[in-house]
Design a protein around this nucleic acid. Sequence first.
DNA 1: CGAAGTTTTGACACGGATCAAGTGAGGTGG
DNA 2: CCACCTCACTTGATCCGTGTCAAAACTTCG
Lengths: 241, 241
Amino acid sequence: MSLERLIGRLQAVNDLSPMERDQLLGLPIKLKQFADGEYILREGDTATHCGAVVSGYVFRQKIVGSRSQILALYVPGDIPDLHTLHLPRMDHDLCSVGPSTVAFIPHSDLHSLLTSSAPLTHVFWRDTLTDGAVFREWVAVLGTLSALSRIAHLFCELAFRLEVVGLLRNNSFEFPFTQQNMADACGLSVVHVNRMVQELRSRGLIEWKKGEVLLLNRGELETLAEFNADYLHIDDDTRRI
Amino acid sequence: MSLERLIGRLQAVNDLSPMERDQLLGLPIKLKQFADGEYILREGDTATHCGAVVSGYVFRQKIVGSRSQILALYVPGDIPDLHTLHLPRMDHDLCSVGPSTVAFIPHSDLHSLLTSSAPLTHVFWRDTLTDGAVFREWVAVLGTLSALSRIAHLFCELAFRLEVVGLLRNNSFEFPFTQQNMADACGLSVVHVNRMVQELRSRGLIEWKKGEVLLLNRGELETLAEFNADYLHIDDDTRRI
DNA sequence: CGAAGTTTTGACACGGATCAAGTGAGGTGG
DNA sequence: CCACCTCACTTGATCCGTGTCAAAACTTCG
């Protein structure tokens, strides 16, 4: 099923009832494939659907002056545009990295589901809140960390989030991003990203070839990145409101 | 009334019914004063109330290694810890700048109000979403802008948000922050903030003395800051779900 | 096989950090 | 009411992390 990663991830922190799971599975979805670099939504668009990532990676991007800044990365199970349910006008772009599949759900169906289910409303609200927590963490990363630590942090966060949805195998994961993408995410130049990635390699912390990253020493990498997964709110007590 | 700024701000984008306004005004609140630098919540705390800022300024702060990063600023009418309704464990600090007054509402009362009112649920959900949009903007600011532009951006955003709640008079507003605070917000050193503030002064863009800032040329300041208020989602069509 | 994009390397420039010291203003106590 | 203390602001000198520019090596794909 297309939404199984989404449901698994929501269930990891939310204690969904079988009925709620069925309600989610009953949502009408339209699957769509995107090619590398293809836009899912652009700044200024008014969204009428929300899209759950089924496979591949997706990122949010904002153009500031002549530069582009990647605001956040999304993995299967995420709904990168869930916020459009209440703020339909996009203030940034949503873009695919590598090929991806997205399951679109009309706002109207989501609205009626949420109107009928207060618990699911809280589940989705909570989901947008952890999304916000990730942005806060990224503000802290860009405001305080060195280039090397920023890049390490990106790897740590991605590994952690992929692990939650079962896409991390032996600390290794698919990574279709270019060094230019990483530069845009970390607020650095490509040249410097390249040197820092080499530094991580030579310290024996990562391997990265052909779109696949392997974290060789996650503990040390997390120390270097000042990474603490609390902000992802995965281990908070599973709650039922 | 303590919540009037909050209600005014919510109303500016949400079209509250008289009943909903009364429901908000009926919430039990406990006013509390905070002194300069006093903590409202600390990282690790589990919140049991949400606090609406009644007067003064408040900021979120995260300690990363030996540095402190200010994540966001809040003005009267904001509820900086609204997210604790669903993520009660704080992953950062909440702190007063200058003296402030906060109106605390127990989570339990908010939960029962929201359970009984789907429209108000959406109003508050939406509010946390624009909060998230501000973090995204700040990611873009830190990732792409020069020191001078970052500082300009901070002034622009603050002026805009204060205007919404009627606290901007002739482009002038109270500003109890130190240059160290600005350095923590912009990811810069105090020394450099000082030089950049002087640069803004000498360009005739701002005046700043005794806790009061005056924007002399908002248009030019916004150009310099690449500031575009769309991300604050104030002018989106007023909506009723 | 050629073309285009990505990664890598080197040389150099610059924005902003750091260190250190001095100035000024508000607050307190004698 | 003045002397002092503290904290914020200011200034100058120097250093370093990262950006910029340019070109080469490698990869991928048509």
